[in-house]
């Protein structure tokens, strides 16, 4: 049970909170203490909107232990609108309907259950944009 990590990362996992460099404007996710571009430490939290397009994807058939109950499942690399790429599971979509370049939006889902007694980890996943 990695409860402190669960708690510590909640703004990242629930709200896609990264960092914005106040000196050069560069955005980062995950948050970094040092700006990758200008090496400034003058950065503030920045929330990404959670809209993006699919850069690449895979279906995981042989999953690490704690994801075994969920397998098979899909993971993608998503290019966020703000210009940052992130790794996340894809959900509510069948493998045959997934295409590189498709529009995706963030939703909050169960990532895994830490066994029947442990905490349930929630966080971002991406699904095809719901049109309305």
């Amino acid at each position: 049970m990695d409860i402190p990590r669960y708690w510590r990362l909640k703004n990242q996992r629930y709200r896609l909170q990264g960092k914005k460099c106040l000196d050069c404007g560069n955005l980062s996710f995950p948050p970094r203490l040092v700006c990758r571009k200008c090496k400034s430490r003058n950065c503030e939290p920045y929330e990404f909107k959670g809209m993006g397009t699919l850069y690449s994807y895979t279906t995981i058939f042989q999953a690490p232990d704690r994801f075994d109950q969920m397998a098979p499942y899909m993971v993608g690399l998503i290019d966020l609108e703000e210009g940052v790429r992130i790794t996340a599971q894809l959900t509510d979509v069948l493998p045959d309907d997934v295409q590189i370049g498709m529009k995706l939006e963030m939703v909050i889902r169960q990532i895994y259950e830490d066994g029947p007694k442990g905490p349930i980890l929630y966080g971002y996943k991406f699904r095809p944009v719901l049109k309305f």
């Binding site: 990242q12 690449s56 995981i60 042989q62 996340a88 599971q89 990532i111 980890l121």
Partner: peptide, 21 residues
């Protein structure tokens, strides 16, 4: 660990993302 592995990515999965692209 915080941003790839806990999102369900396996080591094979990372390489699969590269290969697909």
């Amino acid at each position: 660990a915080d941003y790839e592995t806990t999102m369900g990515l396996s080591f094979v999965g990372i390489n699969a993302l590269l290969m697909r692209r």
